[in-house]
């Protein structure tokens, strides 16, 4: 049996969705039987090659996020947005009505316990956007799996449906926005 190639990444997210994926516990053994991971925090491969399924956690908050997202779209036959942040912008998007400069000031200058804070300004750092956006506002997304994070069982159900070529379908209990 040829294994499915799967790539995953976390953009403006907290890695909670990836943690929830790991939460499928012993089913991880079944997963690695059926799936080979390409680019993913699990493999530490830095760039994504042609894949069957791409799973993107997190919204888009900076220029690098857009590059990674476009790389995923170019390479993945099926692209899945996983979690509240990828789908709505999520918690990071709560800054969308705060001026970006004010955000930086608050975080690096006025935050509790800070002394002589400096706003990072290294050319290596990606350019932050003034607003955080869900990923479907940047590239076409084939499937959405909401939750903050989605429960492990929901991720498992979703992926096994996709792998079997079925339209993914969640039971009521597995559909959550929080």
């Amino acid at each position: 049996m040829t294994k499915l190639k799967v790539a995953t990444c976390s953009l403006a997210g907290c890695f909670g969705c990836h943690m929830s994926l790991l939460d499928i516990d012993e089913k991880l053994f079944d997963l690695v039987q059926a799936v080979e991971f390409d680019r993913s925090p699990i493999t530490d491969i830095k760039h994504c090659g042609p894949c069957d399924i791409g799973i993107v956690e997190g919204g888009v908050c900076n220029a690098e996020n857009v590059h990674v997202l476009k790389e995923f779209r170019r390479n993945c036959r099926i692209l899945v947005a996983i979690g509240a942040c990828a789908i709505t912008g999520g918690i990071p998007a709560m800054r969308n009505n705060v001026d970006l400069w004010d955000c930086f000031q608050e975080v690096y200058h006025y935050g509790i316990g800070l002394e002589n804070g400096q706003i990072p300004n290294d050319p290596e750092l990606p350019l932050p956007f003034d607003k955080v956006h869900p990923i479907n506002e940047v590239v076409r997304i084939d499937y959405f799996l909401p939750g903050c994070p989605p429960p492990a069982d929901a991720i498992w159900k979703f992926l096994t449906d996709l792998a079997a070529g079925r339209e993914p379908k969640l039971d009521y209990d597995m559909l959550h926005y929080d």
């Binding site: 509240a84 789908i87 918690i91 998007a93 709560m94 499937y143 559909l175 959550h176 926005y177 929080d178």
Partner: peptide, 26 residues
């Protein structure tokens, strides 16, 4: 601005519940 993960009403909210009922994935 509906950020359900940080909303006190989440789980008891009718807007969210109707969206679940209708199978709104995004």
């Amino acid at each position: 601005n509906h950020f359900c993960p940080s909303c006190e009403k989440s789980g008891n909210c009718q807007l969210q519940a109707v969206a679940y009922h209708l199978g709104m994935m995004t």
